[in-house]
Design a protein around this nucleic acid. Sequence first.
RNA 1: UGCUCCGUGGUGUAACUGGCAACACGUCUGACUCUGGAUCAGAAGAGUUCAGGUUCGAGCCCUGACGGAGCAACCA
Length: 566
Amino acid sequence: MSENNIPVNEEVKTPVSFIEQIIIDDLEAGKNGGRIHTRFPPEPNGYLHIGHAKAICLNFGMAQKYGGKCNLRFDDTNPVKEDVEYVDSIKEDIRWLGFDWEDREYYASDYFGELFEYAVDLIKRGLAYVDDQSAEIIAEQKGTPTKAGEESPYRNRPIEENLDLFYRMNEGEFDEGSRVLRVKIDMASPNMHMRDPIIYRILKKEHHRTGDKWNVYPMYDFAHGECDYYEGITHSLCTLEFEVHRPLYDWLVEHLKSDDYRPRQIEFNRLNLTYTVMSKRRLLELVQEERVKGWDDPRMPTLCGLRRRGYTPESIKKFIDMIGYTKVEAINDVTLLEHAVRDDLNIKAPRVFGVLNPVKVVITNYPDDMVEELELINNPEDESMGSRKVHFCKEVYIEREDFMEDPPNKFFRLAPGREVRLKGAYIVKCDSFKRNKRGEIKEIYCTYDKETKSGNEQSGRRVKGTLHWVSARHAVDAEVRLYDRLFKHENPLEDKETDFREFLNPDSLEILEGCKIEPWLADAKPLEKFQFQRMGYFCVDYDSTPDKPVFNRTISLKDTWAKINK
RNA sequence: UGCUCCGUGGUGUAACUGGCAACACGUCUGACUCUGGAUCAGAAGAGUUCAGGUUCGAGCCCUGACGGAGCAACCA
């Protein structure tokens, strides 16, 4: 307490999400024996995207923070859509984010036996029945959100007959689509999901784990809560669209349970990002129609895409931390994500020189054969990253946009009669320049001032602009891929009249050849990250080889000049 | 015209059991700078969808509107 009765609150509370609050309360109340156990349940039918990262961070994060566990459980109840191909990529992505499920790698298919038993049990209790009608008829009888459904003529079929039929369904005696198992709840329920939902369907399809053992497969609603129960999950966290499933989730667990423990489903808002789409289906379409170059195209919001683009796990986690978990359906500004990477890479990425659109500068008064080795700091944000030597000679490349013949006042770069510093080297003054036939600047002629060498503080001279450069005699060529937003529309799915493909940004990829980089960079390994000074953060692509280095631009630096220029 | 959920600066989130709207990003100034980056200092910007009500006092409670989203796959 301070003297003038202003209460001093020593505890600086960092706000927690409503989910975390529930967990804290449950733990304090000693619910579930004071245990917290979550799960991340991906369906192996596609690659993980940043929206999944939000769920991963929540489930693994909460377990970690409160001394619990988080299972990885593949939700593989539909062999028609799922494939092992995706299992490995999913595991890789979760690990990349830095989470560990230890030995708890489960599959919904691990529980097919138990689930089948439970279904049989429900039949025996008169709570489930086999329906012989077609999908169309069943859908029709289901009614609409505003109109109650009507009961199936098979609803009150004798238990023995249901049992017999269900076993024979699994034996493979009937065709796909000819019969389903439904749970008997309430065809007049205002909640569509409670109108005798289907829990088993016939699928004569090889399952990636159980092979041809089963001819019937459980539906999501039937499998999910039950798997949660079998695994001792305490908090089953999922996205908002499952809110209306919760009564069914609870009903099924309630009728299964043999003790006091109950998993609790809690829903949170999914991650939406501006200028992209997040649905697996749309992303799959983009891949299949070759609008992008695969799932890991650096323009994709997939985790493998972001990884290839140069995003770090830390930046993704930081971003997710910033946006939080609520029940409001929001669309998050990509600039937040971009800020998160810049912030992270600013600390981590070594600075190097890379000239994207080179133009040659000849320093006319510099000795023809002289080569100097200049020492440059690798990262002004982190001294421990040391320094490196860079060659300097009479001819260097600078960025084409760093020279203007007739510049406006605010242009602090090179122009006839003006001086700039070549970073880490000398101050040079532009005397003249030459054009090619097409009228483009071909060569710029400068003189340098020997006294202004970096580190020679006595020169005391200051210039407005500092340019990055690379020695023309030492530089190596590289390909640089510049990325822009995949869509031109903030929310490509918003306009229901227009197909989202029409909003694709035709300029989302620009490939630059003949960029000039420091020679040692040719040996950098895929995924290594650098800041090309004054240009942005770049990352070595998988396609890169020492003979033909390839870089992806993760994100440009903030550019106030570009803004002034607009 | 059913059920469920939601509605706080431009965006995303805060505000403990009601006490006079906070933070981040963005924006705009200015300082510093051998990256027009980073950093630092500061500013603008909402009176909480609307209307009633309860209360000394409401973003928080009540009622009613309005607006948005989800739900009618043998998908998850």
